[in-house]
Design a protein around this nucleic acid. Structure first.
Lengths: 205, 205
DNA sequence: TTCCATTCGGCACTCGGTGTCATTAGTATC
DNA sequence: GATACTAATGACACCGAGTGCCGAATGGAA
């Protein structure tokens, strides 16, 4: 509407934010590391970050969402990776490759990722809450499968396969956390092979 | 210690309980049906049941546990079913059969089961909480697989397979809820076949 | 300077869940 | 029947997560 056609993102800015997702996340994760998730209250976090309690809940919808960094961006990357694969690559191969790609991280990030996943998989309230986040991950897989099989996204096949790949990924993660220095990508591949051979063994009854 | 050797279960009883799991469950489910899960408070439930708030939490550890009837007994039945199967029945076949058996219900129970599952899978807080209950289900499967494969229960193979079977079951349940008059057992079987063929298609690259 | 957009943060409130403890209601013993 | 013991009850206060409301703070633009 303005004469210059300037974007809303640069004009008419109000008060500047006093913190950021990254900063809150950093402060909170440190507290979780030291005192544990359950024994760290939101009041502890906002005190450490020097903001008001009310402000915290404008940055994160819940305490449970803190350990989940920018998951949506990761999902978008995975969606693109799936779309970029040649269409003659078999479905399961494509999914295995993409899941592994999705979990590839620079070596420097691995210790932090380990700590985050340790929380997400071993703190009961986070484990439970994670289910809601995984739903969007499954949706990405289901969309791809539905497109490949030419069936609706919400039909049985895409949903079952999406669930199964999530399931296998989680079992690989659990193994990864169990032993220091384990290779996550290798474990993922092994988990896929397990499922593969389990079902193959079915034949010769 | 008594001269008659009488069991503690019959002697020296104190005040009789003013309610029961079944009654609370019944009262609560009815309220959930009418007003929805989130808009029914624990105070509503205890008022309807005519008990004290504190008493409620002695019967159920949380509001989220209400829709889960006696899950442990069901698990025990599944464990026994798995153990009763001939050891030359292939692993995957045994699991498919047991999961299907686990979900077999008398026709009269089906409408109630539908309502319970509708809550468990479609109310976010219940969906999240369910993850914690599913863990014991997975444990039953993992124990069986570990025994069959002669590997530790917490190793990758049993865990991955347990996760995968849970995943496939859930996708079948979602389909079941989506359409009136669907056959749950048939959907479960179809979901297993989906996973089966997805992995089989992998071969011929 | 004035106006406006936007964020901040205090306050009161709801709801789920827990620890404590006196009370109640049964049974067995004397 | 009085008493002792047992077990469940429920009232109270408390905690922590999360929300609605609203005035105050802070910046750029007119």
């Amino acid at each position: 509407m303005s004469t210059t056609g300037e974007l809303k993102t640069t004009s008419r800015m109000g008060r500047q934010p006093s913190t950021s997702h990254a900063e809150l996340s950093h402060v909170a994760l440190e507290l979780f590391r030291v005192r544990g998730f359950d024994r760290t209250t939101v009041d502890d976090i906002v005190a450490a970050a020097g903001i008001g309690r009310r402000t915290f809940f404008r940055y994160f919808p819940s305490k449970n969402d803190l350990p989940w960094g920018d998951f949506e961006t990761l999902l978008e990357r995975m969606r693109e990776h799936l779309a970029s694969l040649p269409s003659d690559l078999p479905l399961v191969e494509a999914l295995c490759a993409s899941v592994i790609e999705f979990n590839r991280l620079p070596a420097s990030e691995i210790p932090y990722h380990r700590e985050r996943m340790e929380l997400l998989l071993h703190v009961p309230s986070l484990l439970a809450h994670s289910t809601l986040r995984y739903a969007s991950w499954r949706q990405v897989v289901a969309e791809f499968v539905a497109d490949r099989l030419q069936v609706p996204e919400d039909s049985l096949e895409p949903q079952a396969i999406a669930w199964a790949f999530l399931a296998v990924s989680l079992s690989a993660y659990e193994q990864w956390l169990k032993t220091e220095d384990a290779d996550l990508l290798e474990l993922l591949a092994a988990a896929f092979r397990t499922l593969d051979s389990a079902f193959r063994l079915r034949e010769h009854g």
